[in-house]
Nucleic acid binder design. Sequence first.
DNA 1: GATGAATGAGGCTTCATTCAT
DNA 2: CATGAATGAAGCCTCATTCAT
Lengths: 203, 203, 203, 203
Amino acid sequence: MSSEAKAKVFGQKAKQTRQRILAAAAQELAERGGDLEIANVANTAQVSSGLIYRYFDSRTDLIAATVEDFYDQYDQWVIDINPLPGADWISRERARVERSISFIRKHPLAKVVFLNRQKEPLVAAVESRRLAAHLQLAIENVLLAQERGEIDSSIDAYVACPMIMGGIRELLVQLLSDSPQLNKKPHKMLDQTMAFMARAMGL
Amino acid sequence: MSSEAKAKVFGQKAKQTRQRILAAAAQELAERGGDLEIANVANTAQVSSGLIYRYFDSRTDLIAATVEDFYDQYDQWVIDINPLPGADWISRERARVERSISFIRKHPLAKVVFLNRQKEPLVAAVESRRLAAHLQLAIENVLLAQERGEIDSSIDAYVACPMIMGGIRELLVQLLSDSPQLNKKPHKMLDQTMAFMARAMGL
Amino acid sequence: MSSEAKAKVFGQKAKQTRQRILAAAAQELAERGGDLEIANVANTAQVSSGLIYRYFDSRTDLIAATVEDFYDQYDQWVIDINPLPGADWISRERARVERSISFIRKHPLAKVVFLNRQKEPLVAAVESRRLAAHLQLAIENVLLAQERGEIDSSIDAYVACPMIMGGIRELLVQLLSDSPQLNKKPHKMLDQTMAFMARAMGL
Amino acid sequence: MSSEAKAKVFGQKAKQTRQRILAAAAQELAERGGDLEIANVANTAQVSSGLIYRYFDSRTDLIAATVEDFYDQYDQWVIDINPLPGADWISRERARVERSISFIRKHPLAKVVFLNRQKEPLVAAVESRRLAAHLQLAIENVLLAQERGEIDSSIDAYVACPMIMGGIRELLVQLLSDSPQLNKKPHKMLDQTMAFMARAMGL
DNA sequence: GATGAATGAGGCTTCATTCAT
DNA sequence: CATGAATGAAGCCTCATTCAT
């Protein structure tokens, strides 16, 4: 699939170089709104353009790997860690929304990944796979809460989860777009958001 | 700015040609996932590639015009027409969601426009403007309902509207992606969706 | 296979341009010993490099088409025309060897095509096909002469024809390489060559 | 000029490494029809790509050395050894043709060396020199036989030798190309070939 | 209005070669 | 001796755009 499929083995220095290239690619994608020029990445990473092809099969493969890397970081920060073990559903989700907001505020790639879904099949496949995984997780999350009696069983998780996730993403995009209405009172916005979710999930 | 700015005047035949090009561009954008090649559009529209430049300033201008055209149709079908004059907020919204679903099912460009936001400033501007207009309409819509007492005043429209619109869009995308969970019982899905919205808006 | 397979239709001027490119490619191949650079071909043909791709799918396709063109000319000059209708086998072959010699002396591509068989599959396929056709023709030629009683039936055409054709080609290559021994008395060389063939074929 | 000119002195292990590289280069040339990539040779030879430059000055030098090596083996097997001391011309040549056939059947490089004459001057020079040496030997061979009265003096060795050598080479190529007509009865083919040569040389 | 031949800048990719370790 | 990361020149190819007819 991506260059990872070949399971290339690199030494220590090589791994650092690979990371430098990935970081430069992320920066370039952010600056150019989802586009990327090999020469610029090479410049930023302080390597020759040819070297990039030791680590990535093609320009497209580099983009895919960068997006994959972005999702890895996002997942690590927002998804994988259960921020409040033992807490109820809505408290946990609130923590996640908070962490999402702080993540996208500092990661330059966030806006691009959330806005411009790629045309190139290889990259599109990565995004599709990761988004589907998020959705799947959210659905299982809700189903579990329903089993526990936290959420009403009459709610269809397959409808509610896309709506919540799409809603949250749109909100994040609005935030990134410097919407004045949303950015002036961040705390109130979060309260409103969670209240919306709570009502929507019948809590 | 866009081709409209020039206010070109065309004869009858010319208008038809322009429409054929727009339709071909829509088809090409749909087939290539948001990308477009002038030569292919010319082929599909049965015109020479040079002719396209009599009607549109540039490739980007053509894309912008096509997207604009798409939104015109969407608005005409979903937004502008008040499907149920005198009905309450949730009934009207249900009608709009229904019309949205039928529209995207038949318009090949829907998936692309909803998924791939374009990088080119000119096109991005069109999309941004039309989306902002939709959002603005939704917000005014809610504020009005709040004045009328239909919707609780404590709900912040600037949070709730993006969430609902993003949620609906994500749902539409899932529908177009042949999600088996959503497509098997269309009517139940719609009920679930509207129930979600009703709860979320405190109805 | 080559660009001919697409059966593109070109206007009058376009055909001339295509011919100019083919001629330039032949010259470039001759000058660089079988190699070819698009930019140089474009320069020689007085066209932009991009234009070449309107007429040929790729650099390799251009080379293949050029070689094909070379063989077309060669066949027209040496093979297709029966130089001496009604004459006996050896007289006809003598005429063909003469025509071969005059052809390769004036066609700049001859040396390259006869010496450097190409690695690129597309070009190799062209050469293989054309050479096989020549060999097939020669074999049928001999078989016919054997039926007529001109050539002894005990001679195996499938052995004799490759040997004669390979021998002639080697001789042509020697001629092109300015072998002093062969070039000083052209007429005697031809006599010797035909005598060799006559003996070899039992005449 | 070539790596031989430097007269590098290598230890025992080094000689083995050099041989491994040469063998890998031969294999690569055979597999890719006359082309060669340093990285692939290094892979096959189980050495790093950098190491190749300890033994050969350049890629071209490596190819030249490989071809030289091929001719050394060929000459040792076919030319240098006088297979039948004291025998007459045609018997000796028959032995050589037999040995040629067995050699090219087992050496993977044979087809490539006989078919693709290289463009790079250094390699072309090697091929040209070795071929010229072969031709020179054949000519002297014939002249000697003529002095002895074995072969008729009216035959021009400078015409007959290229024709025979070119003919034999073409035959070998046909054999390697799996020509069904030639491969089904190897012994008869050899008889026919030698009969052809005998007639051609007036024997 | 309409054609399609022609342009040419711009980017990706390859791969022989070098060199620090 | 040996490695393999790094270089960078070189060339193919694409495709939006123009313009003579």
